[in-house]
Amino acid sequence: MRRHLYFLYLLLALWSGGVHASMGLAEIPAAPGDGPVTVFYPSADTAQPTRRGRFNFDLAVQGAPVRGNGRLVVVSHGSGGAPWVHADIARSLVDAGFIVAMPEHKADNYKDDSNPGPDSWSMRPAEVSRAIDAVGRDPRFAPLLHLDKVGMYGMSAGGHTALSLAGGQWSPAGFMQHCEANLVDDFQSCVGLITRLTGGPLDSIRKWAALFVIHHRFDDAAPREHTDLRIAAIVAGVPSSADFDMASLANPRVPLGLITAQHDRWLIPRFHSDRVLAACLPRCELIADMPTGGHGALLSPPPPGLTGLVGDMLDDPPGFDRAGVLPEVNRKTTAFFSAHLLP
Rank of each mutant, 00 (worst) to 15 (best):
V39G: 06
F40H: 06
N56F: 00
N69D: 04
A21G: 15
T38Y: 12
S43E: 08
A64M: 13
I28M: 09
N56M: 01
G68I: 08
R51M: 02
T50Q: 06
G33I: 12
P32H: 02
G63K: 14
A64S: 15
R51C: 00
E27D: 12
V39T: 12
D34T: 05
P65C: 03
E27C: 13
V66C: 13
R52K: 11
R54Y: 03
V37C: 02
Y41Q: 09
F55H: 12
P42C: 08
T50W: 06
G35W: 11
T38H: 09
F55V: 00
Q48S: 15
R67Q: 15
R52D: 01
D34S: 11
L59N: 10
A21Y: 04
M23V: 14
R52H: 01
V37S: 09
A21M: 05
L25S: 03
D45A: 13
R67S: 13
M23F: 00
R51I: 05
T46M: 05
G24K: 03
A44L: 10
F57V: 05
I28K: 03
R54A: 14
A26Q: 07
N69E: 13
G53W: 07
Y41K: 10
D58E: 10
A64H: 14
P29I: 10
A26D: 15
R54P: 08
V61K: 05
A30Y: 08
V61L: 10
A21I: 04
P32T: 13
D45R: 07
M23G: 00
A30Q: 14
R51W: 01
V61E: 05
Q62M: 07
L25Q: 09
P49G: 09
Q48K: 15
Q48F: 08
S22N: 06
P42Q: 12
G33N: 14
F57G: 04
M23I: 13
N69F: 09
V39H: 11
T46Q: 09
F55C: 01
L59Y: 13
L59W: 15
A44C: 04
L59K: 03
R51A: 11
G53F: 04
A26N: 13
F40R: 14
P36I: 09
D58H: 13
D58R: 13
R54M: 10
S22W: 00
G68A: 12
G24H: 08
Y41W: 07
P29A: 12
Q48H: 13
P29M: 08
G63W: 11
P36S: 15
R52W: 00
M23L: 07
